[in-house]
Amino acid sequence: MKTVSDSKRAFYNHHTRPINSVYRRVIEELLVEMHLLSVNADFNSDPIYYLGVVTSFERLMQGYQPEKDKQSIFNALCKSTDGDPEVYKEQAGSLLSLAQGKTLEELIEWLGNPQSQEGGENIVEPIQAIAKNQNFKYSRPFGIGLYTLLEEADLELIKDDKKRNETLDTLAEKLNLPAEKLKKDLELYRSNLEKMEQLLKVIEDVLQAGRKQRERREQEKQTKETATE
């Protein structure tokens, strides 16, 4: 069986540039998670899982420099765990587009009984299979995918702990998911997003202080040069 080390080696074969140290843990955790799911006999990828991977990558990699490396890193994550990055992005995009046209109530109803719509035929069947699969392998990226859909349908709901948890309980019942694990995973995800935002602010403050210091030194240098003329 393919090991975590095999997937890590494959990742660094696909992406050969150094990883920015601030984001290394984010990337390694996502890589290990994707690897463990890829070798699990009960796991089947689906559009909600794809959306969760794409969303968590985009949000937790905010501010990554150099920006142009992000696409290469995402491709390496998918390919090293036997996935196709184009499939991830295409199905995640299709599902998100579908959610954008629905109210929260319509979205919950649709997730409980997915019906094919124009442009979304390829995402319906795997979602229909979720509730019927007694051995469905729930994962944190799947939970993040659900959260992203709810966020798209009703941003205010996401900010209200009570309503959000009630909605997650409803979805867990409809899709036969572990409700407490789902809520715990999403609390951790929200916490990680907040930490990343705080870290980026600290980095920006440090960079800004450095810029001001350089500007001050340059100004002092120019002042001295003017005084000696």
Rank of each mutant, 00 (worst) to 15 (best):
M1W: 10
S5L: 13
K8P: 00
R9E: 14
A10F: 13
A10H: 10
F11G: 01
F11H: 05
H14V: 07
T16Y: 09
I19M: 02
S21R: 13
V22L: 12
V22Q: 08
R25Q: 15
I27R: 08
E28D: 14
M34C: 08
H35D: 02
L36G: 00
S38F: 06
N40E: 12
N40G: 05
A41K: 14
F43H: 12
F43A: 10
S45Y: 04
P47E: 01
I48R: 05
Y50P: 03
Y50M: 09
L51M: 09
T55C: 07
S56G: 03
M61V: 04
Q62F: 03
Y64F: 11
Q65N: 11
Q65E: 15
P66C: 02
D69Q: 07
K70G: 08
I73N: 04
L77A: 07
T81W: 08
D82H: 09
D84K: 14
P85V: 00
E86S: 15
V87P: 02
Y88E: 01
G93P: 07
L95E: 06
L95H: 08
S97A: 13
L98W: 10
L98P: 10
L98Q: 11
Q100K: 15
K102Q: 12
K102N: 07
T103F: 08
L104K: 10
L107N: 04
I108Q: 10
W110S: 00
N113A: 13
N113V: 02
P114E: 01
E118M: 12
E118Y: 11
N122V: 06
V124H: 06
V124F: 03
P126Q: 02
Q128T: 08
A129I: 03
A131S: 15
N135E: 14
F142A: 06
I144G: 07
L146P: 01
L146A: 02
Y147R: 07
Y147N: 05
T148C: 05
L149K: 07
L149D: 03
E151I: 00
E152S: 15
D160A: 10
D160P: 04
K163N: 15
K163T: 12
R164M: 13
N165D: 15
N165G: 02
T167G: 08
T170A: 11
L171E: 07
L175W: 11
L175M: 15
N176A: 12
A179T: 14
E180R: 13
K183W: 06
K184Q: 13
L186F: 11
E187V: 15
L188D: 12
Y189G: 01
R190W: 02
E194C: 00
Q198R: 13
L200P: 02
L200F: 06
V206Y: 12
A209S: 14
G210M: 12
R214F: 05
E218G: 10
E220R: 08
E220W: 01
K221E: 11
Q222E: 11
Q222T: 00
T223C: 00
K224N: 02
T228L: 11
T228I: 14
